[in-house]
Design a protein around this nucleic acid. Structure first.
Length: 163
DNA sequence: GCCAACGTTGGC
DNA sequence: GCCAACGTTGGC
């Protein structure tokens, strides 16, 4: 019998003016392909580590205040991000070929909004979250790991039962 | 809109 | 393979 992999948790940033948690909710069961990531570390996380059923905290950056808005689930594992091949796209990368795609994405769907969105300030004020990546100074990774404990704590702060 | 922090690029 | 210049992120 294959060993069952434990569900892992992640945090993904999005600018709500561009694509918000409400937009993800509106996508329903189809979810959304998380295209446009052009950072190698974030890409590696999506390509190598994010698996079906993993949970994602969706974080609204450049919002007032910045906050965790809701929880999503990985519904498709890594596949090439076609926006890198589109010359009209802001994310076009001439160095990425169809034979050797450089950029990958996962698909996620919304599970539940936090009844009480959790601000960055609140995250920083919680000693249990002192090591959480998103609260580290100068930290700007758009796809980052979250421990099971941190995930549970953020949901508790947001007054959401684990969906 | 500012700008500190950080990642990437490319000349050498 | 160093590192200055440049571009981007994202809190404020």
């Amino acid at each position: 019998m294959a060993t069952k992999r434990k569900r892992r948790c992640w945090l993904m940033k999005t600018e709500p003016d561009v694509f918000s948690f409400a937009d993800l909710v509106a996508r329903g069961e189809r979810g959304e392909s998380w295209d446009g990531v052009r950072n190698y570390q974030a890409r590696n996380t999506m390509r190598d580590d994010m698996k079906l059923g993993d949970r994602v905290l969706l974080y609204h950056s450049r919002a007032t205040p910045p906050h965790v808005a809701g929880v999503a689930e990985v519904i498709a594992e890594a596949h090439p991000d076609p926006s890198c091949w589109d010359p009209a796209s802001d994310h076009f990368d001439p160095k990425s070929t169809r034979e050797a795609p450089r950029w990958f994405m996962v698909d996620i769907k919304a599970l539940a909004a936090l009844p009480h969105p959790v601000s960055l300030e609140a995250l920083k004020a919680n000693p249990k979250l002192a090591k959480m990546v998103v609260v580290q100074r100068g930290q700007r990774l758009s796809v980052q790991p979250v421990t099971a404990e941190e995930y549970a704590e953020v949901l508790a702060m947001g007054e959401l039962q684990d969906p």
